[in-house]
């Protein structure tokens, strides 16, 4: 795995946020932005979300993993865009102007997540979060930090730190070929 050792470029405006990947402490509540991929709903820690913007064309990166859609210019910073659907192994998203990119900032990196739509902000107490069962629904388990049962469905919490760790370029090109 390529680790996150590169220092962040000076001049990116955001104060580094500690990227809460795990669920909140017992008795505490946390807020999540929920977004959709088809019928499924995913939760992203609101403290990690920098902004939400519409889909724009990206510049493709050579030797990148299939879920890396390329990079965009976010007011002078180069930000990679990840296709969340493809990251979860559910095929490539065909982006339109209606698709949404959630820009997240973790302790080490900034990235954009391509999703179908953003739907809600939910407040969840720590007790409500259930662990992810060992046998997941096709999504590599470590990409999810927990499950929240909701009326009429379930929200899967995205583990951002694991999500944006980029696999080695060679491993990725191996996947491609």
């Amino acid at each position: 795995m390529q680790t996150l050792m590169q220092p962040r470029q000076a001049g990116t405006e955001a104060p580094p946020h500690t990227g809460l990947a795990g669920p909140p402490q017992m008795g505490m509540a946390a807020q999540y932005i929920t977004c959709t991929l088809g019928d499924a709903e995913y939760g992203i820690d609101i403290l990690s979300v920098r902004e939400i913007k519409g889909w724009t064309e990206t510049t493709a990166l050579p030797h990148a993993a299939p879920w890396v859609r390329g990079v965009i210019n976010l007011r002078g910073t180069i930000v990679p865009i990840l296709d969340l659907r493809a990251r979860f192994g559910q095929g490539m998203t065909v982006p339109t102007a209606m698709h949404v990119v959630v820009i997240i900032q973790t302790a080490t990196r900034m990235a954009g997540l391509l999703v179908d739509a953003v739907s809600d902000i939910i407040t969840v107490a720590a007790e409500e979060i259930r662990p992810v069962p060992e046998i997941g629904a096709g999504v590599p388990e470590r990409l999810l930090g927990g499950l929240i049962p909701r009326e009429g469905g379930m929200v899967s919490l995205v583990s951002l730190d694991n999500l944006i760790t980029m696999p080695d370029a060679e491993a990725a090109s191996g996947l491609l070929s």
Binding site: T58, L61, P62, H63, G70, N73, I78
Partner: peptide
């Protein structure tokens, strides 16, 4: 010259990125 390493990582054959007049990123 903008760093690719900051948010992504190193890419063989690519030294960095820049932003063109039209706002797009070029490697």
């Amino acid at each position: 010259v903008k760093s690719m390493e900051a948010n992504y990582g190193t890419i063989a054959g690519i030294g960095g990125a820049t932003i063109l007049g039209n706002g797009r990123v070029a490697l």
